[in-house]
Computed example of a mutant assay.
Amino acid sequence: MKIALVGKGGSGKTTLAALFARHLAGTAPLLAIDADINQHLAAALGASDEEAVMLPALGDHLADIKEYLRGSNPRISSAAAMVKTTPPGRGSRLLSVAGANPIYDALVREVGGIRLAVTGPFATEDLGVACYHSKVGAVELLLNHMVDGPGEYAVVDMTAGADSFASGLFTRFDATFLVCEPTLRSVGVYRQYVGYARDYGVRVHVVGNKVDDESDVEFLREHAGDDLLTWVGRSAYVKAAERGRPQPISALEPTNRDALDTMRIAVDACAKDWATYTRQAVEFHVRNATAWANDKVGEDLAGQVDPEFVLGPHVMAP
């Protein structure tokens, strides 16, 4: 299952992504990806500042990623002709969550017992321009080419707010958890996100965070209704970790561990729909091709679409 953590900046999205990844770790194949503008997932998983800076960045190896994923797909003229929305087809190389491949060998590292890939740090000059989107685009390419099996998890810490709507990235997940504080600003981000996501059949589960009492829960329920899945209370465990005193995940407060269990149950209840997954990848690719990518690359990128190809476990067979 592919899982996104989204929400307002400062809502605790990255902290919850780290908690959920640690909750899953050791029980199932797992890959965590930091796709946020602010690259803090490694630190939340226990890396020092020096270790986090030394992690290889997906965004710095985009050409290598494209070349590998292109494989022998005859519809893609070159790696340079691939853009972030390029869908796989016959001849493309596909990824699993845990299987070995040159991309993982080069760019995935273990941090706090979690296999982690990062887009890389964003400089000020990256924001709002093609460089920034190309870094997140590396994540979209990986997810477009990933066939995840039952009981496998890819947990992605997404950029805050609704920036993922700039492409089809928000449709690349089986479960989307929107981390929401009991504040008007935070529920405003929820309304913005869910209003667009539902047009594409994306189910958003709200996970309350920094909840102090029942009035906070009632506030979230008033604004999120049935989308409110569960909530996480203020945590001495998290505070200790943020002060440099990490503990085993088993030391997390029982009520907060129950919330993580509820999230996993919701993920496992999702039904895979590979046909829709493939169709939406094609839809956003053709849209982006018309809007800007054809002009950038100098060819009609709609020709990259393989109309007979549907992603799924069947295409991973030898």
Rank of each mutant, 00 (worst) to 15 (best):
V238W: 00
A266E: 06
Q192N: 15
P248W: 06
V194H: 14
K2Y: 01
R172M: 03
M263I: 12
L5M: 13
A47H: 07
N101C: 11
L5S: 00
L127W: 12
E308I: 07
D126W: 12
L301P: 01
D258R: 14
N101S: 11
D273F: 11
E299S: 13
E283P: 01
W231A: 02
A197S: 14
V108P: 01
F122A: 03
A275H: 05
V206M: 11
V310N: 01
P182A: 11
G244H: 04
V282F: 04
L5G: 02
E67S: 13
V211P: 10
N256K: 07
A32L: 06
M1K: 09
D300P: 15
A52P: 01
N256Y: 06
A293H: 04
R245C: 11
E51S: 09
D216A: 13
N101M: 10
E152I: 02
D34Y: 11
H145V: 06
C131R: 15
A275S: 08
V53D: 03
G188Q: 11
V155P: 00
R22K: 09
T278D: 01
H40T: 05
V136E: 00
A317R: 08
G12N: 06
F309Q: 05
P318K: 15
A240N: 14
V83A: 08
N101K: 10
T85K: 05
D295A: 14
L41N: 03
N38V: 12
R75P: 03
G149E: 06
A28W: 00
L95D: 03
F177A: 02
E299K: 13
A175T: 15
S167W: 00
E308W: 08
A98F: 06
S167G: 00
P248F: 09
L45F: 04
L169G: 00
N101G: 08
M316I: 12
L55W: 05
W292G: 13
K210T: 02
D212V: 14
S186M: 10
W231N: 03
Q247L: 15
E152W: 01
A269F: 10
L24G: 00
D126T: 11
E253R: 13
G7R: 04
L107F: 04
H223D: 03
A63S: 14
T15D: 03
T124V: 12
K239D: 09
A25L: 04
T262H: 10
S96A: 11
M54D: 14
A138K: 01
G99E: 04
S215N: 13
H223F: 07
